[in-house]
Amino acid sequence: MSISFECQSCGKKLKAPDSAVGKSSKCPQCGAKVTCPEPIYDAEVADDAEGLGGVAFSGSNALADLDDGSPYALKDPDPYAPPAGDAAEGPRRPCPMCGEMILTSAAKCRFCGEVFDPKLKKKSKKKYGADSADMSAGDWVVALLCPGIGCIAGIVWMIQGKPKGTKMFGISFAVNAFWTVVQILLRSQMNPQGGP
Rank of each mutant, 00 (worst) to 15 (best):
P192W: 01
V45Y: 13
S132N: 14
N61K: 09
T104E: 15
V34C: 08
K125H: 00
M190W: 13
G53W: 06
F173S: 08
K119M: 12
I40R: 11
I152P: 02
N191V: 11
L63M: 12
E100V: 11
S25D: 04
G90M: 06
C30G: 01
D18G: 03
A107W: 00
D68P: 11
I155H: 09
E6L: 02
G90D: 07
D78E: 02
L144F: 07
L63Y: 14
T166R: 08
M158N: 06
P192H: 07
P28E: 07
E114L: 13
K26S: 10
A174H: 02
P28V: 10
G194A: 02
G170E: 01
I159L: 15
R187L: 14
Y128C: 07
C109P: 02
V181K: 03
K12F: 08
A46Y: 12
P77N: 02
Q160T: 09
A133P: 05
A32F: 14
P94M: 14
P96K: 10
L186D: 02
P17Q: 08
Y41H: 04
R93S: 09
S105D: 14
S9G: 08
S60N: 10
Y72L: 15
P82N: 12
K12R: 13
A88V: 07
K122W: 10
G113N: 07
Q160Y: 10
P192F: 04
K167G: 05
D139W: 04
A32N: 15
M101Q: 14
D76V: 01
A130K: 12
A107N: 08
P147R: 00
C112W: 09
K162L: 03
P96E: 03
K119S: 10
K75E: 15
W140C: 12
C109N: 10
Y128F: 11
L14N: 00
L145H: 00
D67Y: 08
C109R: 13
Q183M: 14
W157S: 14
R93A: 06
C7I: 02
C151L: 09
L52T: 08
D117M: 00
A56H: 13
V141A: 05
C10K: 15
S25K: 04
K13A: 01
L185F: 12
I171L: 12
P118L: 08
D67V: 05
G90P: 06
D76K: 09
P91K: 15
I102W: 01
A130R: 09
G85Y: 12
D76S: 05
Y80S: 15
G53H: 09
L185Q: 11
M168W: 08
A137S: 14
G154T: 03
I171W: 02
G22Y: 07
G31A: 03
P196S: 14
V45D: 13
A133T: 11
K123I: 05
K127L: 09
Q160P: 04
Y80G: 14
S172I: 11
A32R: 15
G194M: 02
F57K: 01
A56T: 11
G170Y: 00
G53Q: 10
L144M: 04
R93D: 07
C151V: 09
A84Y: 14
A62N: 00
M1A: 11
Q183S: 10
G148E: 13
V21M: 04
N61S: 09
M168S: 08
Q29S: 04
P91C: 15
I155Y: 11
M168T: 11
G69C: 02
